[in-house]
């Protein structure tokens, strides 16, 4: 188990270094950093002197080492557009994105799993068929369209919910939270539903397919033959076996909720990292783009680590067993 975690950590470091290399290449070689920093009237001598001072004449490896060293403490330099440290910008925007992603993930799991179980158990029921049809719509409609339709209906026509922004936020240390005010919570509803819808339908279909598979297994039949009540068979025996593959997909999806909240954030003008990133692309704000890239990769790596460790908790077959290996 420890060896496994160690191996995974090592792999994670390799992944992070690769991403850092791409981010660094972006930073260093896309456009001229000096040009982005100084005005039109700077002389060539001043430029050369600045280049030397910033270490841009040093060998590639040394520059890359400096980049990694700084990135590992969250230092990505100044944003060209905002003239502020990227670290500060990200720290400002991070809570908004994480809160949105968290609510979406909970929504997707809390609705997707029960719906998946229900549609598997009552396979031919009217409600199941309805769910399946709706889920098809959920998978096939693009996110921005769903967002725009929601805004049109609940924001413009009914005027129940705010159409953009986070509402009022409460500051807790450096973290800003929209959970604690009425307008904050109201603002969360539409973006989180928009973001969750696709994941929800995906999880529902996955759980349904896995559950149907498990329900055909011999041990389910044997559990029934022992007279266990249907409820126990379905939830204690079948559902837990269903969740093993669901955990993998859910983990990956959680990563993509954070990473690809961009569209939802644009539609709802949600002041999160996605919006920051979109603006950065528009303004060719390379430090922000590099930082975003590294940060998202970091989220993915961490989530995947957690998923791998969860496997050990859920599935005893993966725990290396000394007695078994010794051939007993």
């Amino acid at each position: 188990m420890l060896a496994f975690i160690f191996k995974r950590l090592l792999q994670s470091v390799v992944v992070m270094l690769t991403v850092a290399l791409i981010a660094f290449a972006l930073f260093r070689y896309v456009g001229d950093p000096i040009n982005n920093m100084v005005g039109q009237d700077t002389t060539l001598e001043e430029r050369a002197e600045l280049k030397e001072r910033l270490g841009l004449n040093d060998p590639f490896i040394i520059q890359f080492y400096r980049f990694v060293r700084d990135a590992s403490v969250g230092e990505f330099g100044l944003s060209y557009q905002h003239r502020r440290p990227v670290k500060e910008l990200i720290a400002e925007r991070l809570p908004a994105t994480l809160e949105l992603a968290l609510v979406s993930a909970i929504l997707a799991l809390a609705i997707g799993i029960p719906m998946g179980v229900y549609t598997a158990l009552k396979r031919y029921g009217f409600l199941s068929r309805t769910f399946m049809t709706i889920s098809l719509v959920g998978v096939s409609l693009p996110t921005f369209l769903i967002g725009i339709l929601l805004i049109l209906f609940f924001g413009v026509i009914l005027r129940w919910l705010p159409t953009f922004g986070r509402g009022d936020v409460v500051e807790i240390g450096w973290w800003t939270s929209g959970f604690l005010t009425a307008s904050g919570l109201k603002s969360l509803i539409m973006p989180s539903i928009t973001l969750a819808l696709f994941q929800m339908t995906l999880i529902m279909r996955l759980v349904r397919a896995e559950m149907l598979e498990v329900l055909r297994a011999d041990f389910i039949k044997f559990a029934r033959a022992r007279g266990l009540p249907t409820r126990a068979v379905h939830f204690r025996h079948a559902l837990k076996n269903t969740l093993v593959p669901v955990i993998t997909i859910t983990g990956l999806q959680l990563g993509s909720i954070i990473a690809f909240a961009i569209i939802t954030e644009s539609v709802f003008q949600w002041p999160g990292m996605g919006l920051l990133f979109i603006q950065a692309i528009g303004e060719v704000d390379i430090p922000v783009m590099a930082a975003y890239l590294v940060l998202i990769a970091f989220f993915f790596v961490v989530i995947n680590m957690v998923v791998d460790i969860l496997y050990f908790v859920v599935d005893p077959r993966l725990r290396v067993d000394k007695a078994l290996v010794n051939g007993q």
Binding site: D218, F222, A225, R226, G227, P229, N241, R317
Partner: peptide
């Protein structure tokens, strides 16, 4: 359901798949 297990016990063919792999 009350009879199953209590009055009639059943043994299946494949012992490798008859037990829930996630429970002791």
């Amino acid at each position: 359901q009350k009879i199953r297990g209590k009055e009639i016990g059943m043994i299946f063919q494949d012992p490798l798949t008859s037990l829930n792999p996630l429970q002791t």
